[in-house]
Design a protein around this nucleic acid. Structure first.
Lengths: 341, 341
DNA sequence: CAGACTTAGCTAAACGATTAGCCGAGATGA
DNA sequence: TCATCTCGGCTAATCGTTTAGCTAAGTCTG
């Protein structure tokens, strides 16, 4: 690796001059400038970020810590984040906490060691005493994404989970369904809880209440949803419709339905929040509310960039996006006479 | 941020001693050791990676550059890579070249600036003169993943694309199909070409040859596959079965079929290589060959770690994984009398 | 007991950049 | 002519580590 000294020697100037040329930080006479530039080219000199980094505490690195990288939702988040962060001139270090609080803790320590300048965090739970924004005085710029945790001063970018649950459920109600159940995620997560509350509120507004055994929660995963769905649907008097709290869970529910020789939407209607991109050609096509992931991520990166550049203590900002209902064919009107299995 | 000097001062020792304790790199008497450790704890000292990095050219960073982060296949690769790299004590910087050669070039420069210790690369094309392993003497440890490029001395981890195409096609042939077409990716990519050649070879082995207009290639994307499939299927005399070269393309083809009011597998059988995880509950269930992604990625990381630690010039190693056929219900036996649309 | 080894721990020189502060030459003005 | 100012470019300190090499004190050995 050629260093700034090699360039300086070859160009016959001091390292300060090379630095000035490379960073455009001071006027350098055209002649020296061109000598430097050609030396740079000849040696294929690229300044060492490590050294720069050391000099002025920057690393041009931003971390993203997601709760479950195997979930396509978060894959898309990473995809969008990579692009947004690259546009801004930074690079993205990716971590997966796998819904484990201690992993998250380890990762945040690592993020600090790597001197990442900021972090976009999808927190794994509500009680995260280790998410201290300020370690030794200086705050670590942080944006919470998707989920929030209590008493945090960090910026947040979320969707209106309550609205998502309410819209999806209203759609089912409008089709005439009354016996509606829900499969949702762990209730200590704001996403799971908000969506469920939205669902309950929609029911309540029509004077309905789901039967307790028709409301289940489990991990935000395909296999978890699969087994929860089976146990829910195997009971007599199953619901005619289900609101499922995220995309991979909806897939798990679909698989359970298929394995039980039921069919969707004939035997049961499914509406969800969140989906899996690209599955529009498969049956049934999910009716769901969607999040504007790309916009959300760009907003998160914008907030982070702002917080990093402004430095000081900024009033935390909370940006909430609205979900949109996308109608597929996984929901059917309630049949006049319910045929029990 | 507390520095090693602060710790040394508080513990009343030299920085060398602190370093020795922190890194366990030399014997330190129990007394000093404990003084140092408590100072570390009190100041919440964490050594600056930037400085370490500068000192001995390490960064504990590995880059992964994928050709299309929006493709779930590569999302899974990133997922697996994050885990493998974390186990090894490194962190993963993620880049998306978006199938653009100049973006790839820019990214590889950036990787070098960040002094990543190695890179896992899914190259975008065959002619990549900028993928010079050795920049200024020292080679940049690199593992090519999935795709290969010519005349590279780097390690490679791939699947047997030829076998994948052959197996999938043989499955279709065994069902009695004779008029089989294929939708594959850009032919300058070894994945697209190998799979197509495997498909052709399977046909040839039975004395068949696809009609030229039934073999198409397009970008490895859902929408590209959608339009290619429409144009292919709208012609008279359409094939009774299609071999599709990857997962997202298969979804695109499915969507085209649905939009044309055809149905799979009744009107047309679809077999693919690669799939989208979790869609087992939707219809039809794709018949496809699968790659052992996790094993492949772990192998790639193993090779990279080995190359980084051994340092010297190592004979490049090429590891090829075998695909496995997974039968769904997207393929049906050829109906005795072909009913033309 | 003197010389030769050990050894715990210290001093100071790197690593590769940035940058405050300095210097010397040419321009300007009194 | 001399003091002052300008300004391109250089010198050297600095960022926070690691580590080669040194020192001084203790331990053997003949």
């Amino acid at each position: 690796m050629a260093t700034i000294k090699d360039v300086a020697r070859l160009a016959g100037v001091s390292t300060a001059t090379v630095s000035a040329v490379v960073n455009d930080s001071a006027y350098v006479s055209p002649e020296l400038r061109s000598r430097v530039l050609s030396a740079v080219r000849e040696l294929q000199y690229a300044p060492s970020l490590a050294a720069r980094n050391l000099r002025h505490g920057r690393s041009q690195l931003v971390a993203i810590v997601v709760a479950d990288l195997a979930n396509p939702f978060f894959s898309r988040v990473v995809w969008a984040a990579e692009s947004a962060v690259a546009d801004w001139g930074y690079s993205l270090v990716v971590f997966n906490s796998d819904e484990k609080p201690d992993a998250e803790k380890r990762i945040l320590n690592r993020v600090r060691m790597l001197s990442c300048e900021g972090v976009i965090l999808v927190p794994v739970g509500n009680a995260n005493p280790h998410i201290k924004r300020d370690f030794d005085g200086r705050p670590m710029p942080m944006v919470l994404f998707g989920r929030t945790v209590e008493d945090e001063g960090a910026d947040t970018v979320t969707i209106d989970n309550f609205a998502a649950g309410r819209h999806a459920t209203n759609y089912l109600l409008d089709l005439g369904h009354k016996r509606i159940g829900s499969i949702t995620g762990p209730l200590h997560l704001t996403t799971a809880q908000g969506r469920l509350e939205g669902m309950l509120e929609a029911m309540r507004a029509r004077g309905l209440r789901p039967e307790p055994q028709h409301v289940r929660s489990g991990e935000f995963r395909e296999d978890a949803a699969y087994s929860v769905a089976r146990s829910l649907l195997e009971q007599p008097g199953r619901p005619t419709a289900l609101y499922v709290a995220n995309g991979v869970m909806a897939l798990g529910v679909m698989r359970a339905i298929a394995d039980m020789n039921l069919s969707c939407p004939e035997d049961i209607s499914i509406a969800s929040t969140d989906t899996i991109p690209g599955i529009g050609g498969l049956h049934p096509r999910l009716t769901r509310t969607e999040h504007p992931i790309v916009d959300m991520v760009r907003e998160a990166v914008r907030l982070l960039a702002d917080r990093i550049s402004r430095g000081g203590d900024i009033e935390p900002r909370n940006v909430v996006f609205q979900p949109a209902l996308v109608v597929g064919d996984s929901c059917a009107p309630l049949r006049p006479a319910g045929v029990e299995p």
